[in-house]
Design a protein around this nucleic acid. Structure first.
Length: 493
DNA sequence: GCACCTTTGAAGAGC
DNA sequence: GCTCTTCAAAGGTGC
């Protein structure tokens, strides 16, 4: 975990290891010719090919990316560590780039409208800064439309294929039925100020189909005024699109803040100012597991994508008729829902936030669709990022964790361990690894030498973890010397 | 329908 | 204190 106050590591240790592994892996790949390596080569070449294509299409990025392995990330990390050692002052996070985030940024939008109904200057400035595509003019119809759009757009919305091609769709996760944020974008994403490239006006790539109204021929806004499965709307509130600030800013169409038909009501009540005391107060009265599953509302009344309610598909009917037809099923489902607890997701880490933002871009740049390959590219790009760029994501992730802690004080990552079919996956993985280990043992007397390159380095750690420092006599030979250079070999010496 | 792949990071488990 | 494992996202793939 990056030491937010203690230094400049930013997960540097792990990065060092990972980066080093990657380099060594490439070296070893050239030396070995097993079938697995060949497969890995194929995959790697696929990724490299994609990256090559990206380079041809994006010279600026190619210039930004460090030359392969010569000026390695390891070197950068070493320099940074030395720098941090000199400073001893808390490193990058001494003065976070977003002090008070997100609570300081929000008040500007908590009351985006002036009493006369026009958009407030601050909100206008914010919207224009965040989404230059928006034509936010004071008081005009455009401003209202802009704000309406602004309730949902985000970087991914504007450039990515995930937004308007699959509006209001659900995603069924491998593990738990998950209802996504309507537009597959993290609610904090719009608050990210570290990159403006996604906000650059421009036409989507040709292969990204713009949703065009078949009747008018006019491209529809990225988010059709459809009924959001995440924020169900009553017929009278159709067209009220969720705000881009997601769960941080209560939606106009949300049941928790109903809008009267008489006029425009102040849509952002004081509940918006979620602070620790309030959150703790509410949570003390209403434990997270007691949060009503509908609409993923937190005890504060604010929906959060981390709250996942199972079997919500039936709740997202797109018409009254279908809702009536499904009412019986819904009743039956409700009983099942009661049995199942609300699934609160883990907060996203820095890399996940980075992936979430950059995935659409990579998908657009490359023709790849497989997430596995895309993630490989993103992983390399992540390492290619400068420390300052990474720091922004680390900071954002830190804020997210803090917010998550405030919203769900009693939540623990351990809760989600059990949620995954009682460790079924864990067991399966363990069995798989055990089988692999046994396989290696069959052909190679020393398991550490037989493992693939990356795990080869971790293998000595396994001996240490398996037998402990006290029983080093049980360690295999290479483990004694390879891993604990400073421990085992010194002991033997 | 579900697990897997693939990435990094955070956090819990276990030794 | 260290390593290992799981889970976050994403969507194609295979069984």
């Amino acid at each position: 975990m990056p030491q937010l106050n203690g230094g400049d590591d930013l997960g540097a240790n792990d990065e060092m290891i990972s980066f080093k592994d990657e380099g060594e892996q490439e070296e070893k790949i050239s030396e070995n010719s097993s079938a697995e390596r060949d497969l890995a080569d194929v995959k790697s070449s696929l990724v490299n090919e994609s990256e090559t294509n990206q380079n041809s299409s994006s010279d600026s990025e190619a210039e930004r990316r460090p030359p392969p392995r010569s000026e390695t990330f390891r070197d950068k990390t070493r320099e940074s560590l030395e720098e941090a050692a000199k400073r001893q002052d808390g490193g990058l996070f001494k003065s976070p780039p977003y002090p008070g985030y997100p609570f300081i940024m929000i008040p500007d939008l908590t009351s985006p409208y002036l009493p006369n109904g026009s958009l407030s200057p601050t909100a206008r400035t914010y919207l224009q800064m965040k989404w230059p595509l928006l034509d936010v003019q004071p008081g005009g119809l455009q401003s209202r439309q802009a704000l309406k759009d602004a309730r949902s757009p985000s970087p991914a919305h504007i450039v990515g294929p995930f937004c308007w091609e699959f509006p209001g769709q659900f995603h069924l996760s491998n593990k738990v039925p998950v209802v996504q944020h309507p537009h597959h974008v993290h609610p904090l994403t719009p608050l990210i100020t570290y990159s403006n490239e996604h906000f650059t006006p421009g036409n989507p790539p040709p292969h990204l189909q713009t949703d065009v109204d078949p009747k008018t021929g006019i491209p529809r806004p990225p988010h059709p005024p459809d009924i959001s499965p995440y924020y169900p709307l009553s017929p009278g509130t159709v067209g009220q699109i969720p705000h881009p600030l997601g769960w941080l800013v209560p939606q106009q169409g949300q049941p928790v803040y109903p809008i009267t038909t008489g006029g425009f009501r102040h849509p952002y009540p004081t509940a918006l100012t979620v602070n620790a005391s309030m959150s703790s107060l509410l949570s003390s009265r209403f434990p997270p597991h007691m949060v009503p599953p509908h609409h993923s509302l937190h005890t504060t009344g604010i929906p959060h994508p981390a709250i996942v309610t199972p079997n919500v598909k039936q709740e997202s009917s797109h018409s009254d008729i279908s809702s009536l037809n499904s009412s019986k099923q819904t009743d039956a489902k409700k009983e099942e829902e009661k049995k199942k607890q609300v699934h609160i997701k883990k907060p996203l880490n820095a890399f996940m936030l980075y992936m979430k933002e950059m995935r659409a871009k990579v998908v657009a740049e490359c023709t790849l669709k497989e997430s596995a390959a895309i993630n490989q590219i993103l992983g390399r790009r992540w390492h290619a990022l400068s420390r300052e760029e990474q720091a922004k994501y680390y900071e954002l992730a830190r804020k997210e964790r803090q917010l998550h802690m405030q919203l769900y004080p009693g939540w623990s990552a351990r809760d989600n361990y059990a949620a995954n079919q009682q460790g079924k996956r864990k067991k399966r993985k363990r069995e798989k690894q055990q089988a692999e280990s046994n396989e290696h043992r069959e052909y190679f007397p020393n398991p550490c030498l037989s493992l693939p390159p990356i795990t080869d380095l971790s293998a000595p750690k396994k001996c240490r973890a398996r037998f402990g420092l006290d029983q080093q006599n049980n360690w295999c030979g290479p483990c004694r010397c390879k891993y604990p250079k400073e421990v085992s070999c010194l002991v033997r010496a």
